[in-house]
Amino acid sequence: MSNDFYTTSIFPHAGMIIKICRAYTDTQEDFEDYYQEVCLQIWRSREQFRGESKWSTWIYRLSLNICLTLIKKKKNNRQHTNSNHLPIEAVDENHSFTDESLNLLYDAIRQLSEIDRAVILLYLEEKPYEIIADIIGTSPNNIAVRITRIKERLKKRLDGKVN
């Protein structure tokens, strides 16, 4: 990949890629692998961009699809659970933000199913329901129903922990 392509076409959207990759990884090592892989796949697939959507939407779609089918380097210690508390071994200090509330929100998002994570990330990025539905591959009505449920679940998990 040329540095130019990364600097001009990917880097301006790095924030978006970072947010997605963080939601699908539990450790800093996995996160860095995912980030690099998404950048690599964007570069490799760049000729598939037909201009039917915005470049940023295209990157979003591609990043999600890549993260959904990536192979983690090693087994994570995290045991996914429905409980409100994450197992202690899941904490990776390097994989945290300085904002504690954001860390708690991310931890709660990581406990959602892979698809629910994608839906809520798009919602939090203020994408319209039509765009979310188009990226995921369902109808805006279904997305609206799902978002309400996810928000309730997240609220429950964060209840009393953030202020």
Partner: peptide, 27 residues
Amino acid sequence: IWKEGFLESDALVAPKLNNLYTRKSIH
């Protein structure tokens, strides 16, 4: 929480890309 959390300057630091072109894809 989402909006305010990402206002922190260190929240969205992109990792360094190492030998990306020659990297063995994990996809």
